[in-house]
């Protein structure tokens, strides 16, 4: 398998995603410059601080290259990565990429003392709960009916899919459970697990 998944490495938990992708049998590399998107079949935008990532993307002239990449390739974003994938954000300090039709609500689940781990149900594997790690996590408001909710927490969507793009409020890379990365790779025809 020669497919390559890029992981945006401006700031945040990029190494954890690379480790997870490799554990799923995929190839992975860091992306810090537009030229490094060449040869990538998909991209992950990791968690971190969305204000920091947004600023670094502007300074590195990565907005347009990432937007056009997302028109033809699948993108996954977790936490701050989810915020960056949104069409709109409830905070002017972050300029999102507009990859998926939802509005991101920054720090929806509160400050760090309110961060938590909880079992959620994935609609592609309902029998086995997934340990979802929420860290100063964002919430979402769907802006289109044409978007699939793959998991909810207390009736609110926390995992969304559309056309191969995947956005998560929580951090699948911080557990030992590979199911979400493996499902996504298979869903976008890159994975074997």
């Amino acid at each position: 398998m020669n497919k390559m998944v890029g992981v945006l490495a401006m700031q945040g938990a990029y190494q954890k995603h690379i480790d997870m992708l490799q554990a799923c049998g995929a190839r992975a590399k860091m992306v810090r410059y537009a030229r490094e998107l060449d040869g990538c079949d998909a991209l992950i935008i990791p968690g971190g601080e969305s204000t920091t990532i947004s600023l670094l993307l502007q300074k590195s002239a990565l907005y347009e290259p990432l937007r056009s990449f997302a028109q033809t390739h699948p993108v996954m974003g977790a936490c701050a990565g989810m915020i960056m994938m949104a069409e709109a954000v409830d905070d002017a300090r972050v300029t999102p990429l507009g990859i998926m039709p939802f509005r991101a609500l920054r720090n929806h689940y509160g400050r760090q003392v309110h961060s938590f781990v909880t079992d959620i149900s994935l609609n592609f594997d309902e029998g086995r709960p997934f340990p979802a790690v929420f860290i100063r996590a964002p919430g979402v408001e769907k802006l289109s009916a044409d978007i699939n909710v793959l998991a909810e927490y207390k009736g609110e969507p926390v995992m969304l899919e559309k056309d191969g793009h995947l956005a998560l409020s929580f951090h699948p890379e911080l557990t030992d459970d590979k199911r979400i990365h493996a499902w996504w790779l298979k869903h976008i025809h890159l994975g074997t697990l």
Binding site: Q11, G48, E49, S115, V117, V133, I135, R136, L174
Partner: peptide, 18 residues
Amino acid sequence: ENTFTVKVGLAEMLKGGA
């Protein structure tokens, strides 16, 4: 264990930053 995962998780999110 869960609490520690969440604590280290925030530290992970600060990586690569100032």
